[in-house]
């Protein structure tokens, strides 16, 4: 489709290790198919060790052994020209990096060089990809900073002189200064306070709208997804278990895991008891057979233990991987009321 900027087909990416002759395979990304359209924010939600960070490593074309792509294609389409980053060479990827495909990271301190002024970090990252003359380059950088409500003075500062929120805004400016078509944001607001978090999220949304870029936004925080993403994928143990427009996820989710996530969100003004999900996320080295969620699922049946459910298309751009998607979830089961202490 012409509107797609990223198409992922049947992607399998495993960590393959070999210790003393014992082979070990961690299936961090297992058979993922999805696409991201132009000018949208696509959210990825999942617990830690659900494979979401491994997945965006593939999207960012940052694959290093022992992590490797076993199967599938990851195709970007920049200016109508397709490039499969799963199989492209280093120099081809270097050409699109930062100019077309950029990255907002979680720890702003690890992006900005602590012993150099912010100015030199901008020069290192953006000068070559932008291909402008020196004067025009700094003019463009300052205009872009102004768009993010940052004074040109931040360029003269050292990273430690800026507050956490300011630093995160600088990294957003850095990631977007080349007007990339595709931005990967990995938990960019997790370390921030509530007030600063809201400002930074609003800013990401503003920049995305202004540039018309596509963003893949990864976080485990469902309240962040509710406020910034257009479509949302829920990842469990290396697989997408549900994907839908964000509003549908919060109002009409069908997968028991998603329904649990939404039901357990605390809200101001709501004092009803909230469930907690027992058990632990499965090990990706030895995932359970069948549906990977079945050991923790309140409505699992025999079939879930044997067969792997496929991600099935439903009306309204909704995809669910569950045999029991049309079953009601009994309130007492989702609430998982704890027994009193002995």
């Amino acid at each position: 489709m012409a509107d797609d900027i990223l198409t992922v087909e049947g992607l399998k990416a495993y960590y393959q290790m070999n210790y003393f002759g014992v082979e070990r395979e961690v299936r961090a990304v297992d058979d993922v198919t999805m696409r991201v359209m132009a000018n949208e924010i696509y959210g990825i939600a999942g617990e830690s060790s659900s494979g979401k960070t491994s997945f965006i490593k593939v999207l960012a074309a940052a694959i290093r052994p022992p992590f490797r792509i076993v199967d599938g294609r990851v195709t970007y389409r920049f200016n109508g020209k397709p490039i499969d980053v799963a199989h492209a060479g280093e120099d081809e990827i270097a050409k699109i990096r930062w100019k077309h495909l950029s990255y907002i990271m979680q720890g702003s301190m690890s992006v900005l060089n602590p012993v150099r002024r912010v100015r030199s970090t901008f020069e290192d990252f953006a000068f070559r990809p932008m291909g402008l003359k020196r004067d025009a380059f700094w003019e463009a950088v300052e205009a872009h900073l102004a768009r993010l409500h940052l004074e040109p003075g931040v360029l003269r500062a050292y990273p430690h002189e800026l507050s956490g929120g300011m630093r995160q805004r600088v990294t957003i400016a850095l990631a977007t200064v080349c007007r990339p078509e595709f931005i990967i944001a990995d938990e960019p607001t997790t370390a921030l306070d509530v007030v600063v978090q809201k400002d930074v999220l609003a800013m990401i949304r503003e920049v995305q709208q202004a540039l018309g870029s596509s963003v893949v936004f990864v976080t485990h925080d469902m309240s962040v997804h509710a406020n910034i993403t257009d479509r949302l994928a829920i990842v469990y143990a290396g697989r997408i278990v549900e994907e839908a427009p964000t509003r549908t996820i919060f109002t009409a989710a069908r997968h028991p895991y998603t329904r649990h996530l939404v039901a357990s969100l605390p809200r101001i003004g709501d004092t009803s008891p909230k469930p907690s999900l027992e058990g632990r996320p499965p090990s990706l080295a030895e995932p359970p057979a069948g549906c990977r969620f079945h050991p923790r699922c309140p409505i699992a049946v025999e079939r879930c233990r044997r067969e792997v459910p496929v991600l099935e298309e439903r009306p309204g751009g909704h995809r669910v991987a569950c045999f029991r998607a049309d079953e009601a979830l009994p309130a007492e089961k989702i609430l998982n009321v704890e027994e009193p202490l002995s």
């Binding site: 978090q197 809201k198 999220l201 509710a226 406020n227 996820i249 809200r267």
Partner: peptide, 18 residues
Amino acid sequence: KRSVLSFDDAGRGLITRS
């Protein structure tokens, strides 16, 4: 309290500054 992310407008992309 204003900065707490609410779920009322989930998926509408209406987030504003604090």
